[in-house]
Design a protein around this nucleic acid. Sequence first.
RNA 1: GUCGCAAUAGCUCAGCUGGAUAGAGCAACGGUCUUCUAAACCGUAGGUCGGGCGUUCGAAUCGCCCUUGCGACACCA
Length: 563
Amino acid sequence: MDYKQQVAAALSSAIDGALSTEDVYNKIERPKDSKMGDFAFPAFALAKVLKKAPQQIATELLEKIDQSQFEKVESVGPYLNFFLDKAVFSADILHQVLTDGSEYGSNNLGKGGNVPIDMSSPNIAKPMSMGHLRSTVIGNSIANILKKNGYNPIKDNHLGDWGTQFGKLIVAYKMWGNEEDVKKDPIKHLVDYYVRFHKEDVEHPELDDEAREWFKKLEEGDAEATRLWSWFREESLKSFNAVYEKLGVEFDTYNGEAFYNDKMQEGIDWLNKKGLMHESQGAQVVDLEKYDLNPALILKSDGASLYITRDIATAIHRDKTYHPALNLYVVGSEQAYYFAQLKAVLLEMGLPSAENLHYIPFGLITVDGKKLSTRSGRIILLDEVLDESIEMAKKQISEKNPDLPNKDEVAKEVGVGAIVFGDLKNERTNSIDFNLADQLRFEGETGPYVQYSHARAESLLRKAGATEVSADETIMTDPEAWDTIKTLADFPATVIQAREEFEPSDIAKYSIRLAKTFNKYYAHSKILEEDDQKSARLALVKSVSIVLKESLRLLGVKAPDQM
RNA sequence: GUCGCAAUAGCUCAGCUGGAUAGAGCAACGGUCUUCUAAACCGUAGGUCGGGCGUUCGAAUCGCCCUUGCGACACCA
């Protein structure tokens, strides 16, 4: 039941058409302090129409309004404050949560539409850094949020597994590499080869020619080149998967750049057929003047393909395979201009799903204010950060809860949860200057705080044992319980908002808000006390546990029952 | 140079489609564990919302200008 709608209806009949019901609905706001009611209507908008002082309007409106369905209505200055009937509302919300369980807040706005998501996308033979973390966890959370909204997300790891660097890698491996090293620690050694190659080719430029040759062989399907390439790819994937396993992220497809390598001609033909391509300085470009963008370079002057050539192929492939309701790309904000061009080209082509392409940028991660770079060695290894966080969690457990069963599992959930939550907590597009100490905080507004709140709730439910949990006779009069219930009621709208904005931080902030109101409630009442409200209190605790767990799940964070 | 993004407490950030005295967390200081997990709770202190002009009954929020920082600007991805 939409209680705001109820307020709007009551208001609308009282003001007698001076403002449309829709306008009234949109003007209704939530007071900052719940002492000022649950909903408020500022009378300013009516002042102009009625030519009266807003204070006076509020007072007069109070006389006319039907107050029967509210606990009370007050006029405070230019505001009209509505207090909901706590008993009815509480029972209603708790009932819904307990009935729906983890389905609470789900909707079918997506109607099962397919949504491929381009995410994570590490480069073969390079380590995954904190930058990849962002794309991975943001993409994963958006996938969860989409599913909650009735879509069918398809997580696509668009691997960087093609390009001239593989020629270099093959040359380097043949000169300095050996199989055992690569098997032992693939990324470390492959990076070493790559870096060494770049050092040596300064004095031996002939290495570059060799590399070009090997890449050409690879493109032509040469047996040895292909064998090495697929072996490097496989070993790299193994080490990526170790990280994905820790993060608890799975993919539906791994259609990297190599996958699209033989599918580019269709896009080029399409562009030619539409007469969109023309030559400029020897290269093939598409003009995008009407989009106020620079021309997009589609083919190099030597006829070779570019990133955009492959992305056009990707878009066509997705269009045909999925008929996507939305087509998402979770890629760093430094590529904003590029994606504007890509979308413009696809619109020009008339690709059916071009309109649905959404570029979902996220802010850059820097160290000491500078961009990360593999070659310069300014890099933060994701795996190491995760391990440190897990260690930290282990330490906390042995201090605070040494008797905890399956400590290692919980330490992993909490340690990884801290990192993932920390990344998702703030607005996507904020850039982050990396600071390890910041990442390893477990107190205050953090993942472990929300997990801890959930564990507390579960602990209460365990202690309550067989006690009946019932929302039927809820009389939640204390302000802490009331705030918590109202927060529970906000979850479905938060799920929708997070989907509309592709913004996991909406969920993260919500979970902190819920954890906070619950902890306050916890500190102020004796939940397990034997009286006639015990089962109602447990209903609240159970509801909080359900919604906290579900919020964390949407973020890709585990919610242990004990920690 | 052009375009884009940002600037809010010492630090990291919230601030919903403009609305009631600008809010959290961390750090600082003080209080709360013989009873449901103190990874918690309560309190104190801390701000000319980068600067200016404008729109409005009302601006951290919208518009313009300036300053500072970051990023992007065709043959990388």
